[in-house]
Amino acid sequence: MSLDTPAVTPTPLNTDPPLNADPLLDSLTALFRRVLELPEVPGDGNFFLLGGDSLVATRVLSAVARTHGVELTFEEFLADPTPAGLAARVGSATAVPATR
């Protein structure tokens, strides 16, 4: 190595999970990460396959109601227990109907 070679400064790695284009999906993904105590959860990550159980699912539903103002049933959660699935349900529940 030559003494004239400039030093290379390593670029720090981004340790934050990637953000989705949808803030609602980001919020629900963060909620799954928090309650499951995982560093990363994909938008299509199944809550139960990621280690969640019915008791922890009630915490998710409670947080969704507090944060987004939508009360989902446990059956609705079971239908698609992923951040994307919940985002679709919350989004449709909060959508304003079009007026004619």
Rank of each mutant, 00 (worst) to 15 (best):
Pro23Arg: 05
Ser27Gly: 13
Pro10Lys: 01
Ser27Asp: 15
Ala21Asn: 14
Thr58Asp: 02
Arg59Met: 10
Glu37Ser: 07
Leu31Gly: 04
Pro83Trp: 11
Arg66Val: 03
Ser54Thr: 01
Leu49Gly: 04
Phe48Asn: 14
Ala21Gly: 08
Phe47Cys: 12
Asp26Gln: 13
Pro10Cys: 00
Glu37Gln: 13
Leu36Thr: 01
Asp80Tyr: 07
Phe32Pro: 13
Thr99Val: 03
Thr67Asn: 15
Ala57Trp: 12
Ala95Tyr: 02
Gly51Pro: 10
Glu71Met: 03
Leu31Glu: 12
Arg66Tyr: 06
Glu76Trp: 05
Thr99Cys: 01
Gly51Ala: 09
Thr29Gln: 15
Met1Phe: 00
Leu19Ile: 00
Pro39Leu: 13
Pro12Met: 06
Leu28Ile: 06
Leu78His: 09
Gly51Arg: 09
Asp80Lys: 07
Glu76Cys: 01
Ala57Asn: 11
Arg89Asn: 03
Gly45Arg: 11
Phe77Thr: 02
Val96Trp: 02
Pro18Asn: 02
Gly51Ser: 09
Ala95Glu: 15
Ala65Arg: 15
Ala93Gln: 05
Ala65Glu: 15
Pro10Asn: 00
Phe47Ser: 12
Leu50Phe: 14
Ala63Met: 08
Val60Tyr: 11
Asp16His: 14
Glu76Phe: 02
Ala7Ser: 09
Ala88Val: 04
Thr99Phe: 02
Ser62Tyr: 06
Ala30Gln: 13
Ser92Gln: 15
His68Arg: 05
Gly85Glu: 13
Ser54Gly: 08
Pro18Thr: 04
Asp22Gln: 09
Phe74Glu: 12
Pro39Val: 05
Ala79Leu: 15
Thr9Leu: 12
Val56Pro: 06
Asn14Met: 02
Leu38Phe: 12
Asn14Leu: 05
Ala95Arg: 12
Pro10Ala: 03
Ser92Cys: 03
Ala79Ser: 15
Leu3Lys: 00
Gly52Trp: 12
Thr94Trp: 07
Ala98Gly: 03
Asp26Arg: 07
Pro42Leu: 08
Ala87Pro: 08
Leu25Gly: 06
Ser27Ala: 13
Ser27Val: 01
Arg66Glu: 15
Glu37Lys: 10
Thr73Tyr: 11
Asn20Thr: 07
